[in-house]
Design a protein around this nucleic acid. Structure first.
Lengths: 219, 219, 219, 219
DNA sequence: GATGAATGAGGCTTCATTCAT
DNA sequence: GATGAATGAAGCCTCATTCAT
């Protein structure tokens, strides 16, 4: 015969109560986050007021400050989450192959997939406001640093030519990515997803002007 | 009948006066433009007030509005000039060769040269604020449009592979350029000018991962 | 008909429950009072929020309003209690002697003793905020009124010289008291308790400039 | 023969222009100062908003900030000026006699005269808000420090009895002064000016309880 | 009765812009 | 044309208070 370790009714009730309150609070916080994401994507950090966000979330102006210290804190939370998501995807890709060529294609696939799934986030992440004075972290710089370090390793291992400076390469890469993704996320009908992936991949693997260099090896 | 070849002294004087006044006015306007360029480059459109610009230019706050309709107008004038300069340089380069490879290198040279000569302008042009809602013109978009059209022509003429979508290519190109130049203009000691040019050129001609594609032809 | 001398168990239980609840309630109320006293003493009425008090008392923000109508009500309750305590001590002293000289000394002793025992209350009572618009009662005014009435009686009975106006005297007295006590209560190491008592007493009995007076001409 | 150093008309005109503008600016500043003084005296620092002051002065809300950094700055300027005036009067008195008795009377005269002339300032200076956290300087403390130092000297020179502690004395003195003056300035019909002076003087010279003291026996 | 999230009025401050001189 | 004080709309944030659970 088993004892049913059923929780004490009082405990359970109070736990339930507490959980309900917490859920309500979390829901409000989430509405604010979503509203911020939507509005920042549409209009940018400076055009949007805390009142706008609160109104869009259906709460009073003061409620905003029950959940976020100030406007920048909300913005930072959005971008931090987004960046974590994005780098998570890139890392997952990176681990799935050792072939550099394949790796390039998988990264492009991950990026474009992320943009398709998170159009608002892309527009926020890759707006230059994301690294304005108000927000300390420069997202593109973080990504560039990652890319630069990886690249330097490859150069050191003589798996990449040293003529391409790792720092310049890294800036070029994130510039290309951010611009293409922001452009495409704004209106995904501008190009089929596969075309975006393919073009990004080809530019990395063979450059923008492939045929001009050595015509013997056209794929 | 006599021709009066000598200007009336009064007329001349007043013309001279007027010219002096015009010169003074133009000088004031120019100081405002320079101040705006310097301050916007340092701190961005939103951080700088019209008072800041007037103070930096050594004029009164109201004087600003004798020369520019509003803050955005000054900003636009700066960016329009800069864009005209930049595209002028690019066009000049474009005309000097028919070889696509050489053309790529010359473009990179022109761009990096412009950035070296106009560090402030680069930081303004390629900050994302340059295409914020307040300023209608999207500079990068203009450049992308040019690049896209040119590319489309080359594809149509079968001088470029169609696998690289002209629109995506154009976005990638301006993204790469703008990011690299903004990064470098912020601190030109980050890389030698020649390295920036060379890296940009190589990425275009052969991609970021050249060795991975066909190892037989490493230069 | 039966008298039921033994309490109904249910009634008793519920009475006990009720008493326990009352005790809990009173304890909460008391914690709020103490927290208010501590915090108001440290920072003043305006610097302290109801949230501060509730947090310091370890209760929720809303609980505050289960016990006090508003912030001013709590403040008033603190000051009313303090004033009652203080005047109680002064009255007790007053009854213990008929000798005016002794009375002065005993009053000083009582006041300084109260300050030593209730440093927080002194700082609240004798901060000017205690009679700010938000709180109707002016504590010093109440004390001054008492002093004025007593003085007037002594003058009428010709036991005090009429040259000292009872109202001015009363203001001077409470001004002197409140300032000295507030100063001392802030840091009791500023002077030994006995010195404070003695100095207050001497000033009342002989003035601040005793030796300077020519005693031949008392009116 | 005398050269008439009449100013150049242009210079004069522009000087006049400049002076007119300066005068206008000074007048606005002065209106704000007066409004602040009046309103702070009536309602205290916390009850009065910058908008209140601007409205009372007949200017727009933003104009306040053309002249004062914030509300506290205006408040401080008012109190600093007032304190300088007041201490100036006291110092002038102090120099006019060497007789301590006369000095006491002259100080009382100066203080009460100042209160009569500056009722608003008295109410501001001697409200406890004048030393609230927002304003660093504690006016009464400054006055007390002065009094304490002077007293200590007199004690050292054996011209005052050491039984009266200089620090306690100083607090008592400024407490008495501030309370009496604030009370009287609120409504000067409460007592004739001469009576206030006389009572303050007598309390200092002979105490509040003169007749009660037996002069034969004090240690 | 306790809880604590939500409320929203209200205060402070900034700054693009105007206008009388 | 230059000046610079004045303007006032608008944004940020606080906090006393309410109320559903």
């Amino acid at each position: 015969m088993t004892v049913n370790p059923s929780p004490n009714p009082l405990t359970r009730r109070s736990a339930a109560r507490s959980t309900a309150a917490e859920r309500a609070r979390a829901a409000t916080r989430d509405r604010l986050l979503r509203s911020g994401r939507t509005l920042f994507a549409e209009q940018g950090l400076h055009q949007i007021t805390t009142h706008d966000i609160a109104a869009h979330a259906g709460v009073a102006a003061g409620t905003f400050y029950n959940h976020f210290g100030d406007k920048a804190a909300l913005f930072r939370e959005i971008t931090d989450q987004a960046l974590a998501d994005l780098t998570g995807r890139l890392d997952a890709m990176a681990l799935s192959t050792l072939d550099p060529q394949e790796s390039v294609r998988l990264q492009a696939t991950a990026l474009v997939g992320f943009a398709a799934d998170n159009r608002d986030l892309i527009r926020i992440l890759f707006s230059r406001e994301a690294d304005a004075a108000i927000v300390e972290t420069d997202i593109l710089q973080l990504m560039a640093n990652r890319a630069s370090v990886v690249r330097q390793q490859l150069v050191d291992e003589q798996r990449m030519p040293s003529e391409i400076d790792p720092d310049v390469f890294a800036q070029a890469l994130v510039g290309m990515w951010s611009r293409v993704l922001a452009w495409w996320a704004e209106d995904t009908s501008r190009a089929p997803q596969a075309v975006v992936i393919e073009t990004l991949t080809r530019i990395q693997l063979r450059g923008t002007h492939p045929g001009t260099f050595d015509f013997s090896e056209k794929s």
